[in-house]
Design a protein around this nucleic acid. Structure first.
Lengths: 193, 193
DNA sequence: CAATCGATATACCGATCGGTATAATTTCCG
DNA sequence: CGGAAATTATACCGATCGGTATATCGATTG
């Protein structure tokens, strides 16, 4: 892999990430991406095969590593509040260290089911849901009153986290550890009671 | 207004609502809409002026009435749990009686900020946030421990409600009153504690 | 009945869409 | 250095994009 190859490839990935996050997958043309990256279309199609393959590569190379972090954060250690705090912090950290990717993936979360971009992101969204559901499954062995509501808890928590991050983001700030702690406290108290 | 005029106009609105919800605003062409409605493009442009005007009309005529319901549901009556239950039920009812419009508006909620469709929906999203924030502002007069966190509570609640509805929707069911009651109980307990 | 006016269709616009055939160029290896 | 393989650009494809100029249609009204 030569230097220029890596440069062009990463330049395309970086510009595509920016443009997708700003204007949406459907709102950005291939020509716009390659122009921003300073290359031409065949270069993009050589490296990624298609516009769809570009988005798939973007998610695979930049979102998958974070999913591993989320998975270990959600590992059950008999401390539900601690687990939830780690999970929430993983999301906050993704939003802070990679805001563009976070916004892209969040914007596609509730996207139209038939849209190509939504179908591409769907596996990543489902994996997150599965990780959270697994956490609440394990926790319900210790807290019997949670039985039967694991999926609901997982959805509530994810919706809460993302909404809070989006609110902070629109205000131009980031959630700090105290904000996260408060949010998880509120969520946990509601479960225990 | 002749009968055929109303028929064509409403036919376009109905098909556009379906198609926008299924494939996204950018994913649907004007030609696709008018073909599905059994008319031609000049008819659409006569009634709505532009594709953008079509979406604006859709939201104005079909989402605004529901926003009035939400506003009265969120009217402060010194019973926070009761208010929140009414608000959550308003969302559940919108999702049940008008699933297509609900999905359309939800999908655009977190859409890319530069996308035209997102900018069109933004006022409606902001109005919902403002209504909820107003409710928590009023409530914090009675519950002093809520002071300073009104916006966070509003965002959390909205994220929670929408995530729960989306989960139920993907499972092909709807939230019943008991589900809503449980969700609000959990949320409220977390605040009071 | 005739004139009018809103509603609709035919046919078209330039621009952009995602994608590619071909060829020139660069890089790597022997 | 020579040849092969990977990389990139020029130029182009048909299809579709949102939008419109013009004309016809049909209902209302004087």
């Amino acid at each position: 892999m030569s230097a220029s190859e890596r440069d062009n490839r990463t330049a395309i990935l970086e510009r595509a990430e920016e443009l997708f996050a700003r204007s949406g997958y459907d709102g950005v043309g291939v020509q716009e991406i390659v122009s921003a990256a300073g290359v031409t279309k065949p270069t993009l199609y050589h490296h990624f095969g298609s516009k769809r393959g570009l988005l798939e590569t973007l998610l695979r190379e930049r979102l998958s590593p974070w999913l591993s972090e989320l998975e270990s954060a959600a590992e059950w250690d008999r401390d539900l509040t601690g687990c939830l705090t780690r999970v929430a912090r993983a999301y906050v950290q993704l939003a802070r260290t990679n805001p563009v990717l976070y916004r892209l993936h969040l914007g596609l979360w509730f996207g139209s089911p038939d849209a190509e971009a939504t179908r591409i992101v769907q596996p990543y969204v489902e994996l997150q849901s599965a990780i959270l559901r697994g956490l609440f499954d394990a926790a319900s062995a210790s807290h019997g009153n949670m039985l039967g509501r694991q999926a609901a808890y997982a959805a509530s928590l994810l919706g809460m986290i993302n909404a809070r991050i989006a609110l902070a983001d629109s205000a131009g700030v980031a959630l700090d550890d105290h904000d996260v702690w408060l949010m998880i406290q509120q969520f946990s108290y509601g479960i225990y009671t």
